[in-house]
Computed example of a mutant assay.
Amino acid sequence: MTTRRGFLAGLVATGIAPQASWADIGNPAYLSAAKMRDGSYRLFGLAANGRALFSLPLQGRGHAAAAHPHRAEAVAFARRPGTFARVIDCASGQVLAEMHTPEGRHFMGHGVFTADGSLLLTPENDYEQGVGRIGIWDRAKGYRRVGEIASGGVGPHDILRLPGSDRFVVANGGIDPHPESGRTPLNLPTMRANLAVLDLNRGVTEITELDILLRLNSIRHLALRADGMVGFAMQWQGNGADAPPLLGLYRPGEASRLLQAPEALHRDMNNYAGSIAFSTDGRQIAISSPRGGMVQVFDAASGDFATHLDEPDVCGLNAGENGFVATAGSGRIIRYGAAGAIAVSEHAVAWDNHLVAL
């Protein structure tokens, strides 16, 4: 018997029906890239309970994806530093467009749509000039590049749209790599990360930096609460014996606040926070570390450390129904609550870095 999703996918593929919405394909809760056991790569749509609703091929290793706010459409980015992104119709599996960075640029693995879904914004590194850019791509024109603006710093990595607006917060990680050097930082003597707030008309309107003693703390990934509070996760590029905070909270117009677990647990993160997420109710915030094999949870109001959860090679992280959901390179998807793991599902894949909520 033909399923609703299969029927809709057929109509979309033939052009008979308008493009499907996320509800039309089963309301997936998350997107995640993964490596298959045969060495190929795919983009998965996952239900809230970790069940795979669809998987679609990618041309190489993915990092994160940008989900269109209304249509069942996702932009899957190559792992940084990469120069391609693939726009996929998640109902039909059709590749709608292939995006390629201009010469001298590379994607950083993330992107975000404007509120109406008409434009896609992509953090990029201009590696010849050593500055960050935000590429602007027009969906109606087949994801053609129509402009760019300054990111407000060096090495922009993640970008999120602030609630109820077309203002954006950018994690300028401070690292300036070059494709010929792979992922090796080229600017440690002058590195300085920041958070920048921008809009498309006025450009950068606010920049927030950490204390100069923390200038080697690369601000990498962002999480957003419904009231506009931003969480940011960091990766230390300095001496391994140091153990600076890896988690911060920030609200535009205010100073940032840094959070840290008790000393022993904090050092177990190995100076690396891979992903970050607020809980659904916004009361807690968590960071993951694949290098430390750990998720740490904090109270978002007080900043107090709440609990930690051990999970080898864990990185993907987002809000779940009763806490958080995490993915690991082992193929496990773990739903966490205050008392620990609620449920675990196993998949024959290696989940990549991020779990993107829809």
Rank of each mutant, 00 (worst) to 15 (best):
Q59F: 13
E73M: 06
E73R: 12
A74F: 00
A47L: 10
S40Y: 11
A72Y: 08
K35N: 11
R37I: 13
P57W: 07
A76Y: 05
A74K: 02
G62N: 10
L56Y: 05
F54N: 02
S55P: 00
A72H: 14
K35M: 11
A65K: 10
F44A: 01
A47F: 08
A52W: 00
F44V: 00
P69I: 15
P69N: 11
A66T: 15
S40I: 14
F54S: 02
P69W: 14
S40G: 15
A67G: 04
S40L: 15
G39K: 07
A74G: 01
A76T: 03
N49F: 03
A52F: 00
R42T: 07
P69M: 10
Y41L: 08
S40C: 14
Q59S: 14
H68K: 13
N49D: 13
G45M: 12
P57Y: 06
Q59P: 01
E73P: 00
A76F: 06
L58Q: 10
R42K: 10
A48T: 01
A64D: 15
F54P: 00
A64V: 07
G50D: 02
D38M: 15
N49M: 15
G62A: 04
P57K: 13
P57T: 09
E73D: 05
L43D: 11
H70Q: 13
A74D: 03
F54C: 03
L43E: 12
V75K: 14
G50W: 02
N49R: 15
A34M: 11
R42A: 06
G39A: 11
A34F: 08
R61P: 00
A72Q: 11
A52L: 04
G60K: 12
S40W: 13
S40T: 15
K35I: 05
R61V: 09
R37M: 12
S55N: 11
R37W: 14
F54M: 13
L58W: 15
R37Q: 14
D38E: 14
F44E: 02
A72S: 15
H63I: 06
R51M: 09
F44Y: 04
H63M: 15
